[in-house]
Each structure stands twice: as structure tokens, then as C-alpha cells.
């Protein structure tokens, strides 16, 4: 990907060249926990490039912890430990030489609730760009506009780019955070229940956005909303008690799951 003009990137031009195997990220024998508690047990899982993978499962099933292991956000949690590997483009993100900051530039994240930084709207979009020194000052305006247009926020905020993001609605704030995450040009985007605090209309907008981003971007989304998993994802993984029960095409998982636990969960017999 070209670093010189990130503003030129659009939804239609894929950022990442497929290296052939179609796998963007892969967990191999991943076990992870905090202190004496094991949260994930011996997980093997592939995230296909350019697709949307939904992670579903009851509360406490380990899906968010797994999501956070993909950009090593668990590292800061007290007494964190892990075994096994997580591969990004075939190389282990947990190996000693890995630069956390560089990793997180390639694997972006959107959180459960909007979390704008205490700076102007434009500065929020540019936060990652500046932190990584991605583009020169002369590109800032173009980047801000391109990313805000990409998430459909430009019309609403173009007249107040210099003002506080905290005056925006919750949905607009979340879109701003998405624009901010996209501005660093990630290959993989992790979403932790990104619409759980949003109204239905904004949720629909975000879902459409994710579908349009997907060919260029690999997306992993944790959701409690089964209908959302069905609507947006190509593949769905069902987590239960720290194990991966089933990962397959979304249609298949919802209509003819292989495992009885999956069937119980997606049919609503088990929550």
C-alpha cells in the first residue's frame, strides 16, 4: 500500500494484496487467561481476508477476549498470559520482536461505545495519522475529508471540524471513531459490539458501511445481536465457554449448524 498519499485510498481500491492463502489472521492453539483463570482454551481459527467474520456466543464465552488478542489489547490487563500463536500475514504477532504500535496500525479497533479523544473533530480523525507519521501536513485536510466522507459524516460536520466531538450524537461519535480507525489504513478492523449503544437507523448505516468496506478490509465483529451477525457477516464463529464450537459460512451456521450447542444458541434455546 502506498504510504505517500493515503487520502487517495478509497473503498473501491483494495489496500492489501492477497498473498495467496486467503487468510488474513490465524490463531493456532491459542490459550489465554488472566492469573489462574483461563478464558480461551486451545483455539484454532482462520480469519479470511476481505471478509466479515462475526464472533457470537453467550456472555463470558471469550469472544471479546479473543478479539482483543488479535491486536494484543489484553497485554495490559493484570496477570495476562497466553500460549500458542496468532498470525497476521503468516507471522506471529506475539513474537518478541513485534512492535505493538506497528501491529495496531495494521489491526485497527472500534469499541463498544464511542470514545473520541479530547481534541477537535479533525484532530480526532488525524490522531493515528500523526502518531504514525503517515502523511505530511499538506495531506491533512484531504485525509480528514476523505475519511469523513467514507463514513458518511462529512456533510454533518464539515462546518465544525475544529469543534469538540463531544457535542455530536452518539452515532456520529461512533462514525467519527470509525473514520479515525480507517485513517491509519488498517488491514484488519476489529469491532467490539460497535452498534450496541446506537439507534437502529445508525446501526443500519454502520452495517451497510461495513459491507462496503469488506472487500478492501478484513473485518472481525463481536456481536450479541444474532440478526446483525446474519445481516453483515460472511462467516460466523460460535464461542462457548472459551472454546470455538463452530466456524463456518454464516448461512450454514444459522440454518444447519453442525453442533447441537450452536443450534441451541442460534435458535434462542440457550442464551
Amino acid at each position: 500500500m502506498s504510504l505517500s498519499s493515503p487520502a487517495a485510498r478509497s473503498v473501491d481500491s483494495p489496500v492489501v494484496v492477497d498473498r495467496g492463502d486467503g487468510v488474513a489472521m490465524r490463531a493456532r492453539g491459542l490459550s489465554l487467561g488472566f492469573g489462574s483463570t483461563a478464558v480461551l482454551a486451545d483455539l484454532d481459527l482462520d480469519i479470511h481476508r476481505g471478509t466479515i467474520t462475526a464472533l457470537i456466543g453467550p456472555t463470558g464465552s471469550g469472544k471479546t477476549t479473543f478479539l482483543r488478542s488479535l491486536n494484543r489489547m489484553n497485554d495490559k490487563v493484570a496477570k495476562h498470559w497466553h500460549r500458542g500463536d496468532v498470525l497476521l500475514d503468516g507471522s506471529n504477532i506475539y513474537s518478541p520482536g513485534v512492535q505493538l504500535m506497528a501491529l495496531r496500525r495494521r489491526v485497527g479497533m472500534l469499541f463498544q461505545r464511542p470514545n473520541p479523544f479530547p481534541m477537535s473533530i479533525a484532530e480526532n480523525v488525524l490522531a493515528g495519522v500523526k502518531a504514525h507519521g503517515i502523511a505530511g501536513k499538506q495531506h491533512y485536510r484531504a485525509i480528514v475529508e476523505a475519511r469523513l466522507r467514507e463514513v458518511g459524516l462529512w456533510e454533518a460536520v464539515s462546518s465544525r471540524l475544529g469543534s469538540s466531538p463531544f457535542n455530536l450524537s452518539g452515532g456520529q461519535q461512533q462514525l467519527l471513531c470509525l473514520a479515525r480507525a480507517l485513517a491509519t489504513g488498517p488491514e484488519v478492523l476489529l469491532l467490539d459490539e460497535p452498534t450496541s449503544s446506537l439507534d437502529p437507523i445508525t446501526t443500519e448505516h454502520v452495517e451497510a458501511l461495513l459491507r462496503s468496506l469488506a472487500p478492501a478490509l478484513t473485518i472481525v465483529i463481536v456481536t450479541h445481536n444474532l440478526a446483525q451477525a446474519r445481516r453483515v457477516s460472511n462467516r460466523t464463529a460460535f464461542f462457548y465457554q472459551g472454546r470455538l464450537v463452530e466456524l463456518t459460512d454464516t448461512t450454514k451456521l444459522f440454518e444447519s449448524p453442525e453442533h447441537p450447542e450452536t443450534a441451541n444458541y442460534v435458535s434462542g434455546r440457550m442464551g
Binding site: 479530547p118 490522531a127 493515528g128 502518531a131
Partner: peptide
Amino acid sequence: PRLPKEGALALGMSDWEVARKVSLPWAR
């Protein structure tokens, strides 16, 4: 709050950048 700080880390900022860009402005 924890969430903006996590957001900054997830964006690839160092601890020092998180302090400078998020924590200190928040408490300024």
C-alpha cells in the same frame, strides 16, 4: 475514563502519546 485511553492504544499510540493526547488534555 478507560475507553478513550484504550482507543488511543488501539490506534497504535505509545503510553507517552496516550498520556499526552488523551489523559492530560482530559485533566487539563
